[in-house]
Simulated assay, not measured.
Amino acid sequence: MSREVVKKGETVVLIDTSYRKYLVHTGGKTDKIKGVGVLDPTSLVGISYGMQIEVGSKKFWVLKPSLMDKLQCLKRKAQIILPRDAAQIIINCAIEPGHKVLEAGIGSGALTIALANAVAPDGRVVSYDKREDFIKHALKNLKTVKLDKYVETKNRDVTLGIEEKELDAIILDIPNPWDAVGHAWNALKTGGYLCTFSPLSSQVEKTVREIKKHGYIEVKTIEN
Rank of each mutant, 00 (worst) to 15 (best):
I90G: 01
I106D: 06
Q72E: 08
G35N: 08
K75V: 09
A94K: 14
I113M: 11
G37V: 10
D133H: 10
A114E: 02
N141L: 08
N92C: 06
S127R: 07
R76Y: 03
W61S: 14
V62S: 12
I81S: 11
A78T: 09
S48H: 15
Y150V: 08
L67E: 06
Q88F: 05
E132G: 03
A116V: 05
K146I: 04
Y22D: 00
G35D: 06
D31Q: 03
I135C: 00
Y22I: 01
N117R: 11
F60G: 03
D69G: 08
V36L: 11
K59H: 13
R124S: 04
V45L: 05
A86Q: 04
S43E: 05
I81V: 12
S48I: 12
F60I: 06
Q72Y: 08
K29L: 11
L147M: 14
D148Y: 02
D129P: 10
E152T: 14
T153G: 10
S108V: 08
F60W: 10
N141K: 02
W61T: 14
Q88N: 02
A87W: 00
G35T: 11
S108C: 09
F60Q: 03
G28A: 02
L115A: 06
Y150N: 04
L44T: 01
G105L: 10
L139N: 08
Y128H: 01
F134C: 12
K64T: 07
D69H: 09
K149T: 06
L139Y: 11
T26Q: 02
V62N: 11
G105D: 07
D31R: 05
L63E: 09
L115Y: 07
A104F: 01
E132R: 00
R84H: 00
P41T: 00
M51N: 15
I89K: 01
K32N: 03
K77F: 07
G109K: 03
G46W: 04
A116Y: 02
L82C: 02
M68Q: 08
R84E: 00
K154G: 01
G28V: 06
K75F: 08
Q88T: 06
S57L: 14
K32T: 07
I91A: 08
G50T: 13
Q79M: 09
